[in-house]
């Protein structure tokens, strides 16, 4: 250990104790306490309570809310649906971005122009991405639904759960490609050209070079992006689902975050919603720990 714990990440030259540092961290700490710690504590506390819909009576029920969730087939289904949704979004957005970045890394001409034309979806709000896609696939008017109809396929995501899921996956993937593309491209461009040249001299073609040199070297980025994409699909796709399907039809696109909202604000099941929040917090903490473990490893490496 280089520093004693109290001096961890402190400058060698620094200012001594005074009231000033407290004043400096005060705004951040204040907001953290009021809008983060307090509500998180409330969520944990609430998750042990059952409250009727009018808030007239509350009862302390220990872990009953969690037991109910565990026994609730809807919740278990939501869990596996969320896993499926996240993996699909991560898989498609990573693969497409990898292909595009691989191509963009090869071509020297127009590379910056291509990048500009690929990064902008990053700036589009999830709910707007949802609006774009729901408009294209609108069963009565949408241009894609119309085209599908010409080929004899009757698209209706308002009735068909599988189609609804496909639609939210497409919208969520569309929005995430640019982010992944930027990271893949940055990672590929940081690979020393001499490595690629050496293998080219040894007679390796573009495809072979990609799989034996470029792809293994960008593994850390791929792993990082995998985690980021899963977090994105878990938590940031609320707007897409709210705009496209509202969790329907018949709950077929309700993912965990949507259920927390739906049970809490529409169903007014405060205890149930709070215990779902607690489970989600546990998931985020778990993912964050994995991410940090991994980053530490990378630093060693």
């Amino acid at each position: 250990m280089l520093f004693s714990p109290g001096e961890f990440m402190l400058k060698r030259v620094h200012f001594g104790p005074s009231w000033l540092p407290f004043a400096l961290v005060a705004p951040q700490i204040f907001i953290t306490l009021v809008f983060f710690m307090w509500p998180a504590g409330q969520a944990i506390f609430q998750s042990f309570l059952i409250e009727d819909a009018f808030g007239l009576s509350t009862e302390f029920v220990w872990l009953d809310n969690f037991k109910d969730l565990w026994n609730d087939q809807h919740y278990i289904d939501t869990f596996s649906r969320t896993a499926f949704f996240s993996l699909m979004v991560a898989f498609f957005s990573l693969s497409i971005a990898l292909i595009l970045a691989g191509m963009a890394d090869r071509v020297v001409k127009f590379a910056t122009a291509y990048r500009t034309m690929l990064i902008w979806p990053y700036a589009v709000a999830p709910v707007l991405a949802g609006a774009l896609w729901v408009f294209m696939f609108d069963p009565t008017l949408g241009i894609v639904a119309y085209t599908l109809d010409m080929f004899g396929y009757d698209w209706n995501h308002k009735l068909n759960g599988g189609e609804a899921m496909a639609l939210v996956i497409m919208a969520a993937t569309w929005k995430q490609i640019s982010y992944n593309f930027l990271f893949f491209l940055a990672a590929m461009q940081s690979i020393p050209k001499s490595l690629i040249e050496a293998s080219a001299i040894d007679g390796a073609g573009p495809a072979r070079r990609f799989w034996t040199i470029i792809f293994p070297l960008i593994t850390p980025t791929t792993f990082f992006l995998l985690v980021v994409n899963i977090v994105y699909a878990f938590f940031e796709t609320f707007g897409i689902i709210h705009a496209v399907t509202e969790g329907g039809p018949a709950g077929s696109t309700t993912i965990l975050v949507y259920k927390v909202y739906n049970d809490g604000f529409i169903g007014l099941d405060l205890g149930g919603s709070a215990s779902q929040s607690v489970i989600l917090m546990a998931i985020v903490i778990f993912i964050t720990i994995i991410q940090f473990r991994y980053i530490e490893k990378k630093v060693d490496y």
Partner: peptide, 22 residues
């Protein structure tokens, strides 16, 4: 430092109802 760090783990979507209440 840790108190700030922990906010990283609590996106608003996760604790939406209690935050709304506060």
């Amino acid at each position: 430092f840790w108190m700030i760090f922990i906010t990283l783990m609590l996106p608003v979507e996760v604790r939406i109802l209690p935050t709304f209440k506060v």
